[in-house]
């Protein structure tokens, strides 16, 4: 669907993007992740044709961004950060303006506005001034305006900044819902957001792609280790240590707490061998109080690969 090759962008002498390449296929929700100033917005602006690349190429479907920019813009919907739309107009007026400029004919326009208003739940505010809307409603009006022409590719720059937690959840659900049928690329510096909404993550730092994959792929690749929390009754640390000694997948056994006859330990494993461990414990007469795999977050990976040097 989208193919980016050796994309480079200089602002005067400042190198904002350094030869990045990636592909996005239809129906993916891709999250561009990176610290502030990493080049996320620049990448999105290049994809939408708002900026011209210094070198490199962007292809959307069969179209080239330089020669067929009108065709690409026609199948794309782009919502910049903080939804800059005209404060003087009513919501309905803005949507009809966007529809007209996108070339939707008058007969279909009304029904299209109704259907996006339903989807984004802005039916009741169609006759309000945009300037009077709250941040969350504004974001929904923005989403409605980019969905109006039924785009194949949606590009959203930090779609949840400045929203309260409830609004963030609502917008995320909306994006997921949209992503079932369309290709979505969104940028964010909030990790949990990307983890919650995206099927794939591209991490950018200082204008370069430093990681690319599904959230779980990234976790495996960059953390590699599985950490297990165990809480056992009727066991003592030495016993447990002896028991697990022979297994080569275990890198470390750490004691967290030993109180009365309960024992909390942490096992660091090369890979996930929970079954094996369970079988060993089963042979003893220890009682398992807790046996859980510690969730490793993208946060750790992100921190690791963006704070190098």
């Amino acid at each position: 669907m989208i193919e980016v090759k050796d994309l480079t962008k200089y602002y005067n002498k400042f190198l904002a993007l350094d030869k990045i390449s990636f592909k996005v296929s239809r129906g993916e929700i891709v999250g561009l992740l990176g610290p502030n100033g990493a080049g996320k917005t620049t990448t999105l602006r290049l994809l939408t044709g708002y900026l011209k690349p210094t070198s490199g190429s962007i292809k959307v479907k069969k179209y080239n961004i330089i020669d067929d920019y009108l065709k690409i813009k026609a199948i794309m919907g782009y919502l910049p950060e903080s939804v800059p739309i005209y404060k003087n107009l009513m919501v309905y007026e803005y949507l009809s303006y966007v529809g007209a400029i996108r070339g939707i004919d008058k007969k279909n326009l009304l029904s299209k506005i109704k259907s996006v208003a339903n989807r984004c739940q802005i039916k009741d505010i169609l006759e309000k001034d945009i300037g009077d809307l709250s941040k969350g409603l504004l974001q929904r009006v923005g989403l409605a305006s980019v969905l109006l022409h039924d785009p194949e590719v949606l590009i959203l720059d930090e779609p949840t900044t400045g929203l309260d937690p409830n609004q963030i959840l609502e917008i995320r659900d909306l994006i997921k819902e949209i992503g079932k049928k369309k290709t979505v690329i969104l940028s964010s510096h909030i990790l949990s957001e990307v983890e919650a909404t995206c099927s794939r993550v591209i991490i950018i730092n200082k204008g370069k792609i430093v990681a690319d994959g599904t959230p779980s792929e990234l976790k495996e690749k960059y953390l590699g280790k599985t950490i297990i929390n165990l809480s056992l009754k009727k066991a003592n640390f030495d016993q447990v240590k002896n028991c697990f000694q022979g297994i080569e997948e275990i890198i470390a056994i750490n004691l967290i707490e030993e109180k009365d006859d309960t024992l909390d330990i942490e096992l660091t494993l090369k890979n996930d061998i929970r079954e094996k461990i369970y079988n060993i414990i089963k042979q003893r007469d220890w009682i398992i109080l807790e046996f859980s795999k510690k969730k490793t977050s993208l946060e750790k990976i992100f921190k690791e690969i963006t704070t190098e040097n």
């Binding site: 044709g49 065709k71 800059p84 739309i85 005209y86 404060k87």
Partner: peptide
């Protein structure tokens, strides 16, 4: 200054 030019410039218009 409000940034709406970014939306205007990404509409399929010359």
């Amino acid at each position: 200054s409000i940034g709406s030019y970014e939306i205007l410039a990404t509409f399929p218009v010359k």
